[in-house]
C-alpha cells in the first residue's frame, strides 16, 4: 500500500469501481483512473457535482456554453444511455471505450449509426442528415444554397441508400462505411492510447494497490 492510498472514495456520486470498469472495457485500471482525472475536470467546470451536464460537455467540446449545438447534443445523448440528463463516470468510460483505437470496428459502426439516427427509428433519414448539414454550415459559417444541399443529399443517398427507400438502414450503413472508411475516423481517439501519460496525476489519487495493470 503506497502512502497515497485511500479507501475513502465517495467523493463523487455514481463513481463506479475502477477495477470493475476496467474489467468491462479495453482500459486498464490505471487508464480508468487517468480517465477519472479528465472526468473530474469536465464535471466540475460549471457545477462541481461529479456528473457532467450538457453545458459542461459543450464547454469541453467548444470552449463555450452559450450556443445550443446539435452535435454536442448528439454526443451528450450517446453518453447518456440511460437518459438521466447527466453523464456519470461509468457512462463516460463505457462510451469512450468504443472510441479506443483497439475497440471492435463493429462497435464503432453501430455507434456512428446511432449518432446519425437522431430520432432513434432505426433508420438514418434524409431529413436528419439535412438537419445536421445545416447545423454544420451554421457552425462553420459556410454558406451553401439549398439546392446545393439537396444535391449533396442526392449524391449521398444514391451511394448509401441501396434499396432507394429514402432512408439508410443498419446494413446499408455498414456497407457504406465499409466503402468509405474515412467516415469512421471520428470514432477513434488516438489520445486514449496515452491517457495515463496525459493525466499522470491519477497516480496520486489512485485507490487500488496495484495500478500498473
Amino acid at each position: 500500500m503506497g502512502c497515497f492510498h485511500s479507501k475513502t472514495r465517495k467523493q463523487f456520486p455514481g463513481h463506479e469501481d475502477p477495477v470493475l470498469l476496467a474489467s468491462q472495457t479495453a482500459f486498464s485500471v490505471s487508464e480508468v483512473e487517468a480517465l477519472f482525472e479528465l472526468f473530474k475536470s469536465i464535471s466540475s467546470s460549471v457545477i462541481d457535482d461529479g456528473l457532467i451536464n450538457k453545458e459542461e460537455l459543450q464547454l469541453a467540446l467548444f470552449k463555450n456554453r452559450k450556443k445550443e449545438n446539435l452535435f454536442a447534443n448528439r454526443i451528450f445523448d450517446l453518453f447518456d444511455v440511460k437518459q438521466k440528463g447527466v453523464i456519470d463516470f461509468g457512462d463516460f468510460v463505457r462510451l469512450l471505450n468504443v472510441f479506443h483505437p483497439n475497440a471492435p470496428q463493429e462497435d464503432k459502426i453501430n455507434l456512428s449509426f446511432k449518432l446519425y439516427d437522431m430520432d432513434g427509428t432505426g433508420y438514418i433519414e434524409r431529413q436528419e442528415v439535412k438537419q445536421m448539414l445545416i447545423a454544420l454550415l451554421c457552425e462553420s459559417e459556410m454558406k451553401l444554397a439549398d439546392e446545393t444541399i439537396e444535391m449533396i443529399l442526392d449524391k449521398t443517398f444514391v451511394e448509401a441508400d441501396i434499396d432507394q427507400d429514402g432512408k439508410i438502414d443498419k446494413s446499408e450503413w455498414h456497407n457504406f462505411v465499409t466503402r468509405n472508411p474515412s467516415l469512421l475516423k471520428i470514432m477513434t481517439l488516438p489520445y486514449l492510447r496515452d491517457i495515463t501519460t496525459t493525466f499522470p496525476s491519477f497516480v496520486f489519487n489512485s485507490e487500488v494497490d496495484e495500478v500498473a495493470t
Binding site: 449518432l115 442528415v129 451511394e159 475516423k185
Partner: peptide
Amino acid sequence: AAPVTMNAFELISTSQGLNLGSLFDR
C-alpha cells in the same frame, strides 16, 4: 470551395462538436 464532391457524412464529420478529441485539450 468544392464541398459538393464530398458526401453529406464526410462534411458532417468535420464538425468540431463531433470531435471528441477536444475533450482532451485540458
